[in-house]
Design a binder for these strands. Sequence first.
DNA 1: ACATTTGTACTACTTCATATAGTACAAGTA
DNA 2: TACTTGTACTATATGAAGTAGTACAAATGT
Lengths: 131, 131
Amino acid sequence: MQIKIDNASTRPIYQQIIDQIKRDIALGRLKAADKLPTVRQLAAQLVLNPNTISKAYRQLEQDGIIVTRPGAGAYVAELSSNLSKSVRKKLLCEQIELLVVEAVHMQIDARTLGEWFDGTAKKFKFTDSEE
Amino acid sequence: MQIKIDNASTRPIYQQIIDQIKRDIALGRLKAADKLPTVRQLAAQLVLNPNTISKAYRQLEQDGIIVTRPGAGAYVAELSSNLSKSVRKKLLCEQIELLVVEAVHMQIDARTLGEWFDGTAKKFKFTDSEE
DNA sequence: ACATTTGTACTACTTCATATAGTACAAGTA
DNA sequence: TACTTGTACTATATGAAGTAGTACAAATGT
């Protein structure tokens, strides 16, 4: 596990850990059933309090991203979502709006933003389209 | 000004105000030189402390989104960005990554996400492309 | 069976962001 | 001059974030 904490960031540490684990899974670097570092291992490696790692793992388990078992460890779960399609669309579109608003205020034109979007999306392992 | 505060949201109130003013500008509902509500007006309307509104306005002025003058009021500024293109790209692409990671974990395929992205972007008034 | 490892739960504490409350002031407006 | 407006300041209360330390139940390895 290669996780980097940016202490200058306003983003909470436990959230940065969540971000990077979810990112590694979405990139395909972590796959279902892969073992994650133990809470104490990762805490030692990042020089953080174990409670902070535990908080990140707890949140990831809550969201169905990983499975944890005391004594065994933490493992990547199968991709799944218990949310309805409409709720997922609502959540994502809210995030898309914030992104687009930022782009407009940065005076980035629509074509350029679209290119950056496509270029970024290309790196990730999406679920197959249902066609 | 039509601003709605979601008290159930984890997003700070002053940030919600910033979000919605930037959104209205990006949508074209607010244009350069338009007058914003006074701090005390908006505080009374939303039943909030004037300091909270002031914090939002201060942040917006800091980001060059609005111009404020004591005695006169707050006005929408011209669109501009003092950031280099590379910094803007970095900031936006980080936000795009977070969005795409969320989409992958929600099992939304690339084509669907692209459609939602285009559909949302279409509503906003982008800077013209330089072609 | 036993010792170890692992995630979890809990309390206590510090620090910082958020939000409110109230006052005061300088600049612009009428 | 009287009023409005954004700003600055102090003080206070609340909650999140992070650290520190202890304890416990479940899984593992021997």
